[in-house]
Design a protein around this nucleic acid. Structure first.
Lengths: 340, 340
DNA sequence: TGCCTATGTTGAAGCGCTTAACCATCAGGT
DNA sequence: ACCTGATGGTTAAGCGCTTCAACATAGGCA
């Protein structure tokens, strides 16, 4: 079907080895004449190297596998974008495995990726918080891979992480600095490490300034819009009382809470302040703009890929685990109630 | 490095041909004994077929290439999800090419995909509205591919499309049925066919009910949030006058307009009705819920992949171009001003 | 016994490429 | 005339798999 090396070798009256060397820019001594001839033939006949054949012998596919729990979700698609751009920059291609948040699917893709001899794998966070037991296997086989936001007990795989603790801590401190003392909190799904870390950050900040932690102010969410709404409904059913601020473990829940608050006739931030940790794009178009923690999602993806390429180059990477601090973005959704 | 066919052939004391046949479930006469033996060895030694080697001889890679202009955009990631799920269902894998909205990148990926011998390609809409001149080339080579929302002059490639005309038409009619006569319109980028079609739908509906088209009511946008805001600012600078409704070519612009309207002290839909065509996820969390055209983005992706697989199976596909009608979702953002 | 058929398995070629090892030619030095 | 070292190539093996023709064996039948 396609044009092969041999075809253009014949066309030029040289051996296919010669052509191959020219294509790969080998430091071999080949006359400018033949180079010109071959290059012309390649253009003229429309030759594209067969990557499969090439990788059979080089044992490199120039392909990276990426598993994503839900490519339709903004967080993950943005992550994929970061990974993809970096991968592209290195001249590699991306094999995408959408795991639908299922651990089994992820395992399946590990096999697929191995069958396709990808040069490395990047594992995006799995919503469920489960850790794949194939990771140690990969590690033993010395198969290069990088994880994103995966806290796995017992093994320390290379990976990039976000400082979830600091994010929640900073946001809570920001609220208290503005005079808030009774701060409600919506958790993420507490079977995931990142949600727990955010919860811990919230508690630690309270402790820091000697506000005692009140379990009654905690609402258990799962990062979904609906669970933010539910938290709102719960809170307003109980009565707001002295609660002056709400901290959401992510902005999607913050938005859900916000809509419920507004529909209860409350105005943000006049009647209640809202802050949330990022990870969605909603905060970009919310009015008032919500005080939030910005997540460098794209950068997380880029960094993960960078890390993987360091591994691929066989460099001794001393910093195998990169933790991203998350910057606080102050907008109008937090009211200063302290010193007026 | 990995375990090969030969390894397990040796282990079992049979030839690799036998093992290959067993793996591929060939209708050959092989004794249950050897089958059992081989299957055990495969499990035991942890064998994974080398796909590259296989596809060298079968000339099939079980891989689909997908080009996407911006995987970080909700529309495209949802599309990718639909494509991916269908591709997965057929046991194929997905090679993702993020083109960053550049035609050249898309062309690059066409070459990459050919080099990787993908079995077929799916081209998502390119924002720029440009048509790749490699399409005819692919067509001549009989390379299976499917386009999504690409209106290409001169060639009729297989593809899936949305009825943009009908969407704008229906929405406009809905507004007029609610008594609106002066309806402002924000266009998409008019160098894309889909934006033009929506514009045409708007105009056709007006004509249908004998409202004369007023160019002064048209604002030129580019599908971005900011261009919606700009339209809003423009309109309020000129003065609302008798404009009672706004139709946005997509909801992202509708949202931008909405925020500006609210900041001008207008309330939706009391003071102005807003409707927009979908394609973003914002309308899901906007309050009031916006009357909109729902885009079956995911289904679009699925259908595109289905179409491709029909092509791959060599079936004579009579319906090579599928047009999706887009359902109208009526919510509270349109006020009835006709008969009260 | 001889032949046919069914059954189970193998040998070897070849997919398109890379690469190590080898060969030919020739100018220049001695 | 002979050797030497560039210079510019070629040959052939082999990557891991599939596939097809061919082969061995045994049972059935005349």
């Amino acid at each position: 079907m396609g044009v092969t090396l041999k075809d253009i070798a014949n066309y030029c009256g040289v051996s296919s080895a010669t052509v191959s060397m020219i294509i790969n820019g080998k430091p071999n001594r080949i006359s400018q004449d033949t180079i010109k001839k071959v290059e012309y033939a390649i253009k003229h006949l429309g030759y594209t190297p067969n990557i499969a054949a090439r990788s059979m012998v080089t044992r490199k596919t120039k392909t990276i596998g990426l598993t994503i729990p839900d490519i339709g979700d903004y967080f993950f698609s943005e992550l994929a974008k970061g990974v993809g751009d970096e991968v592209d920059k290195h001249g590699y291609d991306l094999l995408l495995g959408n795991t639908k948040k299922q651990l089994e699917k992820e395992q399946e893709y590990i096999h697929v990726f191995q069958g396709r001899s990808v040069d490395g794998i990047i594992f995006a966070p799995l919503n469920s918080g489960e850790a794949d037991d194939l990771f140690p296997v990969l590690q033993n086989r010395n198969y290069p891979f990088v994880t994103i936001e995966r806290y796995i007990e017992g093994i320390s795989a290379p990976g990039v992480f976000m400082n979830n603790f600091q994010a929640a801590y900073d946001l809570t401190m920001h609220l208290t600095e503005n005079g808030h003392k009774r701060i409600a909190f919506i958790t993420g799904p507490l079977d995931t490490a990142s949600a727990v870390q955010r919860f811990d950050g919230y508690k630690a900040a309270l402790k820091r300034i000697n506000i005692s932690f009140d379990p009654a102010l905690v609402y258990f969410g799962d990062f979904s819009y609906e669970s933010g709404e539910a938290a709102g409904r719960d809170l307003f059913k109980k009565g707001i009382d002295d609660v002056t601020a709400l901290l959401a473990s992510n902005n999607r829940m913050g938005l859900g809470f916000y809509q419920v608050a507004e529909s209860h006739g409350l105005s943000v931030p006049k009647d209640i302040s809202i802050a949330g940790i990022g990870g969605t794009q909603f905060h970009k178009v919310m009015r008032p703009k919500i005080t939030t923690i910005d997540m460098p999602i794209y950068e997380l993806g880029v960094k993960a890929a960078e890390l993987l390429f360091l591994l691929l180059e066989g460099k001794k990477v001393e910093e195998k685990r990169v933790v991203f601090d998350l910057p606080l973005l102050k907008y109008g959704s937090v009211k200063n109630i302290c010193c007026k």
